[in-house]
Design a protein around this nucleic acid. Structure first.
Length: 811
RNA sequence: GCGGCCGUGGCGGAAUUGGCAGACGCGCCAGGUUGAGGGCCUGGUGGGGCUAAACACCCCGUGGAGGUUCGACUCCUCUCGGCCGCACCA
């Protein structure tokens, strides 16, 4: 009998639908069998786009579907859900373009994609379907935000704790407060390490005014407001994430200019978790390249913080030191000048009147330049002398302080000690501005020889070079390292590095680092630290189509969280939800919610008229915890029921040991290797610390499906031509003697609609699509899916305009 | 620039303690089969040499060059090419 997909597939799909064939019982549900082991297979849920699914979606979804079915047949109770990540700018933009409210277009898109997914015949439990835009869902996104807001990170315990516990500890005198708001434990035996240099003038909690107390607590919350440089796009009326800004410094959408500008924004203190996010990668079964990408993103560097006192005469009223971070404390004796980032807060205070004008001009120029510009001009070092001097603490040398934009405010302390002999950037800068270069590490002979060969010949003649002994080269290096073509940045033996108390001379670099760090620590001048590249997470957007913050701004600048019983804070219905666009880079951001009805915007609290927070959360928010909601998607009492969470999110490995992560298999594209996966891990760890979830990690095993790459050709009009009739000559491509152009890209970019799953299904049936995608390549070496037994799929490759050449698994 | 992944037939891809390279499949070729529309069955299929043809036999072959080894797709060094991530991170 012939297989007629048009007749057979809809019939069965209707049967599955009616009988809820794929319904998965959880704890407490009828039909739940507690004796069955559980298995949680999760897809990265899609964004409900107006064009529907592209072939990249079924590629991954079919793979997990097969795996879920396999596990089911092996006797597991398999959770295999699907939902929609539906907030975000594209939906808003789509809505603006079509003049329809995003809630309507989003729902329409979701319905369409559900139709397509059902048509493929995927075995999802549709009763568990969720959308991040559903108030019943984002009620709990807001609730989790409040958990973050009401928590602080206790470095002594290395975990988040309720902010009330900090308040209690302060009130009971466990901590006093340092000049910069740092917590100084009263009992030095336990708790937080005091700041470098020891406490100066600490205050007690009771000595603070209520406003100061509140401000202090706010500084420790995991969600806090800060003034940070952001990508401000007045043309779109919103701040943008770095990913939404093109290499040319314009917005990806609309191509408007983007400016770096400090704005008061909500931030999440992900940096507090840097170490744990790094260490716990060892607990999960993920592809090594992905772990590596996360490690690089977090970017730990071993080094030391060192304090440089300002030289006599330039000291300011309250600041006497500049703190720097360095990975090479062993080169401290070679620090011949310092550089501050142009935005560094100390610049204002230390700049001498003579230099003021020049410094100011440079700062303004640096501010107007975008990051991209700064990078584009990276080759040429620029900078200005402040007129001020600092003292190198190891040898009391008076060294000049400069500002330059090659020092970034966002990394370390925003200030560096410059060791031109042993750092490429400092070397270049010193040469450009004629600053002294002092060698304090002796490079190996091979390096010296190689470098001296590249030197211009001395007037003495060529023979001198050949006869030059290694001793002579060494001598020359000590006298004038600046005459060598490059800085020596490797390891070597310390030279020229001694004072009355400590000597690094003759020590190899690793020992020298230890020695000098210990000395600095003894003298209270510094200490060893680990510096991370990871920055705190910019969490607010000036958009309409996102989760509103559950916060009120009350008179006197006080921020009051909305009560849990008042959640969700629903988005107000609005006619005009467009962002406020402007041509003026200095125009203040005007979140669309600013135009919301007064009845929504203003809230009475304790007899005061308070204003709701008008920003919304970024698109990442909803996807940070959706895997938890799938365990118990209709619960209106908790973000996830405790029993359901424990059942689905606690995994056992084969050896019976508890697994670090609850989702047993998570499949999706590499494009989420860093941000989504890092953000979700961060939220999960906070929830873990606060006792709301049972595992330290959300995703035990991760698999990246890789990209489908499509190879197609178009003629000059952009019309596709048959790929198999294209000929290549002299690096160009021809079809019927007309030159054609190669279109090569990932699905999801230019070719994402070249093959719509709908078309394939309409023509050949869902069954074919599954075979077809499997034909493209196995996702894994697993025996569950392989290409061996698939027959007859080649027909699909004969589709006239596109020819897929590969789909490969990453890792 | 730094870091990572990867180069095997016309194609997708097999081949791990280093042991018959190209499993399995697609495509192609030959033959068979009343077989209606996503056909089915059998055989062949890396390149070259020898041969009228076949059997058999020989040589070469995993991007390139070298090395280790009785033996290398596999290990080492260098090199070329592709893909990905980061990028003035002190």
């Amino acid at each position: 009998m012939r297989y007629d997909p048009q007749a057979i597939e809809p019939r069965w799909q209707a049967h599955w639908e009616q009988h809820k064939t794929f319904k998965t019982p959880g704890p407490g549900d009828p039909g739940f069998d507690p004796g069955k082991p559980k298995f949680y297979v999760l897809d990265m849920f899609p964004y409900p786009s107006g064009v529907g699914l592209h072939v990249g979606h079924p590629l991954g979804y079919i793979a997990t579907d097969i795996f879920a079915r396999y596990k089911r047949m092996r006797g597991f109770n398999v959770l295999h859900p699907m939902g929609f990540d539906a907030f975000g700018l594209p939906a808003e933009q789509f809505a603006v373009e079509h003049g329809v409210h995003p809630a309507i277009t989003t729902q329409r898109n979701i319905d369409n994609m559900i139709r397509q997914l059902k048509r493929i015949g995927l075995g999802y439990d549709w009763d568990r379907c969720i959308a991040t835009t559903d108030p019943r869902y984002y009620k709990w996104t807001q609730w989790i935000f409040l958990q973050l807001y009401n928590a602080w990170f206790d470095p002594a315990q290395g975990k988040a704790r309720p902010i009330a516990e900090l308040e209690q500890a302060l009130a009971s005198g466990q901590y006093e407060i340092g000049p910069d708001g740092e917590l100084v434990p009263v009992d030095p035996a336990g708790g937080i390490e005091p700041i470098v240099g020891g406490p100066i003038g600490t205050r007690k909690w009771q000595e603070l005014t209520p406003d100061q107390q509140r401000a202090l607590l706010d500084e420790y919350r995991l969600a806090y407001i800060d003034e940070v440089p952001v990508n401000w796009c007045p043309g779109l009326g919103t701040v943008l994430a770095n990913e939404e800004v093109t290499a040319e410094g314009r917005s990806e959408r609309g191509n408007f200019p983007v400016y770096k500008r400090p704005l008061r924004q909500w931030m999440l203190r992900i940096t507090a978790y840097a170490q744990r996010l790094l260490e716990d990668l060892d607990l999960v079964d993920w592809p090594e390249p992905i772990k590596l990408m996360q490690r690089n993103w977090i970017g730990p560097s071993q080094g030391a913080q060192v304090q440089f006192p300002l030289a006599y005469g330039t000291a300011t009223s309250d600041q006497e030191v500049i703190t720097v971070f360095t990975t090479r404390p062993d080169t401290l004796f070679g620090a011949t000048y310092m550089v501050l980032a142009p935005e560094h807060p100390l610049v204002e205070a230390i700049t001498t009147p003579e230099q003021y004008h020049e410094v100011n001009q440079y700062r303004q120029q640096a501010q107007s330049r975008s990051d991209v510009d700064r990078q584009a001009q990276a080759k040429a070092k620029t900078g200005v002398f402040t007129g001020a001097y600092a003292i190198n603490p190891v040898n009391n040398a008076k060294i000049p302080i400069w500002i330059a934009d090659y020092v970034l405010m966002g990394y370390g302390t925003g200030a560096i000690m410059a060791v031109p002999a042993h750092d490429e950037r400092d070397f270049e800068f010193a040469k450009q501005f004629g600053l002294p270069i002092k060698a304090v590490v002796m490079p190996p002979d091979s390096w010296l020889r190689h470098q001296s060969e590249q030197l211009p010949e001395e007037p003495g003649g060529t023979m001198a070079c050949e006869l030059e002994t290694i001793e002579r080269i060494r001598q020359r290096y000590l006298e004038a390292p600046g005459s060598f073509p490059e800085a020596y940045t490797g390891e070597g033996q310390g030279v020229n590095s001694a004072n009355e108390e400590v000597s690094l001379n003759g020590l190899p670099t690793p020992q020298a680092k230890q020695e000098i760090t210990a000395w600095l620590q003894r003298k209270g001048l510094g200490r060893g630290t680990v510096q991370y590249k990871l920055r705190d997470w910019l969490f607010s957007r000036q958009r309409y189509w996102g989760e509103p913050f559950p916060l009120l701004h009350c008179p006197g600048g006080q921020i009051v969280p909305v009560g849990e019983d008042e959640l969700p804070v629903e988005l107000p219905p609005m006619e005009d939800f467009r962002p406020a666009a402007s041509d003026d880079p200095d125009a203040p951001p005007q979140p669309p919610l600013g135009r919301a009805p007064d009845a929504w915007k203003y809230v009475e609290r304790d007899g005061q008229k308070c204003t709701r927070e008008l920003n919304t959360m970024p698109q990442w928010a909803g996807s940070c915890w959706y895997y938890l909601r799938f365990c118990d998607p209709r619960n209106d009492e908790r973000f996830v029921g405790q029993e359901a969470e424990r059942y689905w999110m606690t995994s056992r490995k084969k050896d019976g040991q508890a697994h670090a992560g609850g989702v047993d298999l998570y499949v999706g594209g590499v494009e989420h290797a860093v941000l989504h996966l890092l953000y979700a891990r961060f939220w999960h760890k906070v929830l873990y610390d606060l006792g709301h979830v049972s595992t330290p990690e959300p995703f035990g095993r991760l698999f990246n499906q890789g990209y489908i790459q499509a190879h197609a050709y178009t003629d000059a009009r952009g019309v596709y031509v048959p790929a198999d009739q294209v000929q290549q000559r002299d690096g160009k491509f021809y079809y019927q003697d007309q030159e054609v152009f190669e279109q090569f890209g990932k699905m999801g970019k230019s070719l994402k609609n070249a093959v719509a799953p709908d078309d394939v299904i309409a023509q050949y049936g869902a069954d074919s699509l599954r075979l077809y995608l499997m034909y493209l390549g196995p996702l894994d070496q697993s025996k569950v899916w392989n290409t061996r037994d698939i027959v007859g799929v080649h027909r699909f490759l004969q589709r006239p305009h596109v020819h897929f050449i590969q789909a490969e698994a990453v890792g």
